[in-house]
Amino acid sequence: MSAGGEHLKDEGTRRQVVLAGGIAGLISRFCVAPLDVVKIRLQLQIHSLSDPVSHHNVSGPVYKGTLSTMKAILRQEGITGLWKGNIPAELMYVCYGIIQFTAYRTTTQALSQLDPYRLPPSMESFVAGAAAGGLATASTYPLDLLRTRFAAQGTERIYTSLLSSVKDIARNEGPAGFFRGCTAAVGQIIPYMGLFFATYESLRPPLSQFQDLPFGSGDAAAGVISSVLAKTAMFPLDLIRKRLQVQGPTRQLYIHRNIPEYRGVFNTMGLIVRTQGVKGLYRGLTVSLFKAAPASAVTMWTYETTLRRLQDMEVAAS
């Protein structure tokens, strides 16, 4: 991206955007996979000493904090435990990155043709980001659900492989089983990505003029700040999505045995608030922000760098 404030719509061919988006998603996911597993374990944990036994005859919380959760997973499941669900997650991130950046580029190009009724730049970014996020989320949602279920498994495996998990869900839960919690996911991602891109496009031009930023570049710094703000605002829906994703016949077989039965977004939100208070909607927020910041920095830096390299290669070849 140029430092002059132009949008993604003006930069890169469709092929370049697809390649840059896919590479950005692939690299970003691998880097933050351990934090993602920790986040999912904490989001699924029910904090109440009166709850049924959760795991290994432990009543109440199994994990206490980000570092202790990571240490517990390493001790009980080995280092590979921190990358559980990485195959469906990598597939999801690559597909998501391709769809997201392509849709964002296409939407902003379409919005730029609305003269004399063109929206303000920040509103264009919000609309394009929301549309791109909603489309990418709905398209890749089954992979997101599989990622969550694999990450929720402890030492006792429910699914032995990606193929077996697909067959098992299709057989026991039907096609709808792959879309448990999809309403919460789309309801979260549309405002999340709208806020993210609107903030990112506003911050990137001024930040690009500063040297020696803590995250290495204006693109990365803008991505971190935008991600933290948007993630905090929309986190309750992300937690609800995770709780709904592990519903079904395998609900009581995961690392947390005491996950309640939830039905629908509002029912889930109401039940969590009644039993755990408002703070129950923010379980795992700290590690989520630890994950979101580097993930967004790596994603946006990789995307921008890859796109520039692809453009330079094309110019050199012509």
Rank of each mutant, 00 (worst) to 15 (best):
G22M: 04
P61T: 10
L19A: 11
A24Q: 08
S50N: 12
P61V: 08
T66C: 09
A20T: 11
V37Y: 05
D51P: 01
V38Y: 04
P61S: 13
G60K: 05
S59V: 13
H47K: 11
V62R: 11
H47G: 02
S50K: 08
S54W: 01
L35N: 04
H56R: 12
V58E: 11
S54N: 04
S48W: 04
L26E: 00
V18A: 14
V62I: 15
S28P: 00
I40Q: 03
V53T: 15
N57A: 12
V53R: 14
G65T: 12
L67D: 13
G65S: 12
V32K: 01
Q16G: 09
G25S: 07
G25N: 05
R29D: 02
G21Y: 03
P52F: 06
H55I: 04
S50V: 07
K64L: 09
L42P: 06
H56K: 10
I46N: 04
P34R: 01
G21S: 06
K39D: 09
L42E: 14
V38Q: 05
A20N: 13
H55A: 12
H55V: 01
L26H: 00
H55F: 12
S54C: 07
N57V: 09
L44G: 05
V18R: 05
H47Y: 13
L35H: 01
L35W: 03
K39L: 12
A20P: 13
L44H: 07
V58G: 05
P61D: 13
L35R: 01
S59F: 11
I46S: 02
K39C: 09
I40D: 04
A24H: 09
G22P: 01
Q43G: 14
Q43H: 11
T69I: 02
R29E: 06
V38K: 06
C31A: 15
R29L: 08
Q43W: 12
D36G: 09
